[in-house]
Each structure stands twice: as C-alpha cells, then as structure tokens.
Amino acid sequence: MAKVTDAVAQLALPYVEAAGCTLWDVEYVKEAGEWFLRVYIDKADGVSIEDCEAVSRPLSDKLDEADPIEGSYTFEVSSAGADRALKKPEHFAQFQGAEVEVRLYRAKDGRKDFIGLLQSWQDGDVTLEVGGAPMVFTKQEVAQVRLYPRF
C-alpha cells in the first residue's frame, strides 16, 4: 500500500506544516477486518489535541475531495508518540544515540527483544550498544525498531 501512503503524505504535508508540525509517518493498515488510515505528526514541544485537530479537519476534507482510497476506512491523526516506530533513514539519524527497542522476527541468543543505544542504521541494518558491546541486527531479522522511553 505504499502508493496510498505516499499519496496521502503528499496531501497531508501542507496541512501538517501549516499546523507547525512535521509529518512523521502515514500508515494504511487492516486491523480486525477494518481499514485504518493513520497520519502521525510530531512537534518539538509536543503534539497537542489541538494540533491533531488542526491537521485532521482540513485533511479529511482534502481526502474526501481527492479520494485516493477506494472503499471505507477510519481516519486518524495522532502524535508519533514517545515510543514511536523508527522507519525512515531520517528517523534513525535523528535518534542516533537514543535508547531503542529492536524486535526481531526470530529469536537471537534466546530472545526477540533487545534494548540498547542506537549506534547506527545502514540500509536497514541496525547496530545497538547492548551491555557495552555493539550488536548488529540485519534488515531481514528486524521486525520493528521503536524508541524506548523510560519514565
């Protein structure tokens, strides 16, 4: 569904920027038999409900007008969140040195989840500092990388 997400990202960008935010990600996923279109936004001082509303209202109208998606779906605009998924090269560059959680498709050394400091990202391969030593996870191994906030 990359074409849908790319089209929505292009439509969303002016509204996101007009609200003083940045576009973090767009996803179009099927959950429990229903389609969801989610636009994730970010802002240096945090995303408020007013920011989400400032993007959601005009973008919803634009989506109705442009009609880039066949069929029905639920539309949501939300903050990327403190535990946001890192997907794009610029996400990994922005959070280099931050604590992240890497989830694997299959267990490695008896586990599927690793928490450490993000050292690098290269063509989908992720290097973390785990317990003071570097660990490399290949693109084929990695199911998801998320920020790991501590409260």
Rank of each mutant, 00 (worst) to 15 (best):
T5A: 08
F137R: 02
D83G: 15
R150S: 15
L128S: 11
G20M: 01
A54V: 09
D25V: 06
Y28V: 09
W35D: 14
A19I: 06
R150A: 13
L118C: 09
D6M: 12
V29S: 07
I41M: 01
K108G: 01
G97D: 05
S72W: 12
T127K: 09
D25Q: 03
G110N: 14
E99L: 08
V100C: 04
G131A: 06
H91F: 00
Q94S: 06
L117F: 11
Y73R: 02
E141M: 10
D67P: 04
A66C: 00
D109T: 06
L128Q: 00
H91C: 08
P149C: 03
V16S: 01
D64I: 01
Q10Y: 08
P134Q: 03
Y28T: 04
L104V: 04
G116E: 11
R38Y: 05
F137W: 01
Y73G: 11
S120P: 10
Y28L: 12
S60E: 08
A9P: 02
D125T: 14
A19H: 02
S60F: 04
C52Y: 12
W24R: 02
Y73E: 10
A2T: 15
A2C: 07
P89A: 13
D113Q: 08
R146E: 02
L37T: 07
L147N: 03
A107L: 15
D61R: 15
G131E: 02
R111M: 13
V100S: 00
V4D: 00
W35P: 03
F36M: 10
R150Q: 05
Y40H: 07
V39W: 12
P58A: 11
F75W: 05
I115C: 06
D113L: 13
V77T: 13
A80I: 04
L23W: 06
V8D: 09
W121L: 00
G33H: 01
A82E: 06
L13V: 07
A82V: 14
R150E: 15
A9C: 09
F75Y: 13
I49M: 11
I115A: 10
G71W: 00
A85S: 08
R146W: 00
P14W: 04
G81H: 07
R111N: 06
K30N: 13
I41N: 11
S72L: 12
K43R: 10
K108Q: 06
G81N: 10
K87I: 11
L118I: 09
P89K: 04
G71S: 02
Y73S: 05
D109E: 15
P134R: 09
L23M: 02
A133C: 09
E17S: 10
S60A: 03
T138A: 09
A12H: 04
